[in-house]
Design a protein around this nucleic acid. Structure first.
Lengths: 359, 359
DNA sequence: CTGAAAGCGCTTACAG
DNA sequence: CTGAAAGCGCTTACAG
């Protein structure tokens, strides 16, 4: 109180309690308050205690803008996701944001709509705010985007995807420098997941298994690869079993695709949709059309989104660890921000086949 | 280029192109550049042109932190929503964010989980960042929250709700001061919507119409009031027709509630769920249980969420203008930020009954 | 209409 | 381990 009253009344005083007020009240210099508050070493423990106490009593709150200006680093973390209409990304966002907020960081979300130039534009805007770190969906980015990220020198963790070539332990150990460990990413092997679900269907005796996909983002294409691999190994591959539609994924589109597939390829005995919303739409369409699932045709999805367990019949799907990805990626980013080196630069969180009654 | 090379090389130079660089290159003072760039009046049009050109050529980007520190106002807008798991709020968020971004503002989202103390905490954190404005879901807030908002002097628009008492034109005209026009809000009349759907069911000859609700936030309770009003007018009101469950809304809960209702009150001929996810869950449960909709019992929902048109049978519901609410509220907030007075401080965007086959 | 100067509230080399 | 001083890059009364 006193400190703030003693402050010279100039024409731009804001009435805010400043670091200077705390310094005066604690009888130390502003530098010391600054260091004590940020938990820097090299400050007398007694002073730290005193500063903390005084700052608490005065209700001091550091000004983020002043801090950002002086330190050239804000407390913002940018997260770039393709869409908000797929609950997958909402789950990712929520988990990341919760983790980052607990560590004192603000999350700034950007929606790229799967569009490279929107992604670049968002990145540019965000970079002007000097974010402390970035979380970006996927590993595939335009050359410009990659250049922006590299030049910015802002730590970055990629979400939901892992590099194709598994890095052997031997080569990992050979790497000494921190930066050469990138790209940092947290996800799971999309290809393996696609393969596993296909094998699950094959194990149930299915022989004509369609892969039906929309959106066709890089992760969907990896699942396609997994499906191809499994079918080829079982000598069941046939290119006419691929139904790829670049339109955005939705329940309605799933229904439409299901109807088309059943009309053109009645011999199909299973359909593996690349996302649960498509599969849910197919289940609903089957009901409308009087097609019995799984007896006439089995249906499987991907991601285990909300509602898949409530469908009739309940949907067989691949459960993906999106909340865990969001949380683990945020933790990895926090390590990088604090200058630490993550033990596992590429973190594989796995997946799980959830067998329900639609197959 | 030249300007930045001429800058004195001190120990903290960041290499960034600053307003000073632009000023030197344009041969004017920094003050003039600052004013020209922000489109303030009282600058010679020729100079404005020159400054714009030079700043463009140098690729100057104002530093948000420096601007925030000097002006005591950031380019952040805070949006507080209850949940991310209800697509209603995701739609709201996306529309608001798109609009604000186009106007040069960053959106910071906070999730309150319908919890007053979380809301307070989020508000406190956000206020330290001196947001330019705030978007807050609902009109009901704790006294502390209201006090924080009032004291902060940050313009605020409320979402999805309108004050109960319709303000007459006469009393509106009597008000001269801008601030007394608050609270600013954009939404629709929840009570009227609840009443309208109930009347729709009554018009179809339904006589025992259950109101089934979860979450029980203030807007749900208003829909309940509308349902009560309609039933009472039709002499059909019976307190045992109210099924209120404070648990979070979900497909699974809808299924559960449906099962309970049908077990305990077989004479019911319609169920009006307060949200589409509950109604969708009920539709799925009906299928499981072999209960025919709408012949045995009609089912109606609220909000027209994704998938409601895809259900079997397609769900009768109330379409609510959430994307429009997000956009209009953002526009209203922008007006307030620029010191303008919105023509309609309470903006009613209405709703629409969507009659499909579940009733 | 324009500019010089002070100030916003922090952090951080530098010197001790 | 601590402090005085400069600096981050803007905005804004004030004077002209």
């Amino acid at each position: 109180m006193k400190a703030s009253l003693n402050r010279p009344k100039n024409h731009r005083s804001t009435g805010r309690i400043t670091l200077n007020d705390v310094a005066q009240a604690a009888g130390v210099s502003p530098s010391t308050v600054s260091r004590a508050l940020r938990g820097e070493r090299a400050v007398d423990p007694d002073l730290v205690l005193r500063v903390l106490e005084v700052s608490d009593k005065l209700g001091y709150v550091p000004d983020p803008a002043a801090r950002a200006l002086a330190s050239q680093r804000s407390d913002h973390v940018t997260i770039l996701i393709p869409l908000l209409s797929n609950t997958l990304f909402v789950d990712l966002l929520e988990a990341a944001q919760r983790t980052l907020r607990a560590a004192g960081f603000q999350t700034l979300m950007g929606v790229t709509h799967y569009n490279a130039s929107e992604e670049e534009q968002l990145l540019r805007e965000q970079l002007h705010h000097r974010p402390a770190g970035m979380l970006i969906t996927g590993l595939d980015h335009s050359p410009t985007t990659q250049k922006l990220m590299a030049r910015s020198n802002v730590p970055c963790v990629h979400l939901m995807d892992l590099p194709e070539n598994k890095v052997s332990n031997a080569s990992l150990e050979a790497v000494d420098e921190a930066l050469s460990q990138g790209p940092y990413c947290v996800g799971f092997r999309q290809t393996d997941a696609g393969e596993a679900m296909t094998q699950h269907l094959m194990a149930q005796g299915k022989e004509r298994i369609v892969f039906a996909a929309a959106q066709l983002d890089p992760r969907v294409m990896q699942r396609l690869q997994g499906w191809r691999k499994a079918l080829k190994m079982g000598q069941l591959y046939d290119p006419t079993l691929e139904w790829l539609n670049p339109a955005p994924s939705s329940l309605a589109l799933g229904g439409l695709m299901f109807e088309q597939i059943m009309k053109q390829s009645p011999a199909v005995d299973a359909i593996f949709f690349c996302n649960d919303d498509l599969a849910q739409g197919a289940l609903l369409a089957a009901m409308r059309l009087g097609i019995s699932v799984p007896h006439q045709v089995a249906i499987a999805g991907f991601n285990d989104l909300t509602g898949s367990d409530q469908m009739w019949p309940p949907l067989t799907t691949v459960r993906t660890p999106r909340a865990q990805v969001g949380e683990a990626a945020a933790h990895m980013l926090l390590e990088l921000i604090h200058g630490e080196i993550p033990k596992q630069p590429q973190l594989d969180l796995g997946f799980e086949i959830i067998a329900r009654h639609s197959t």
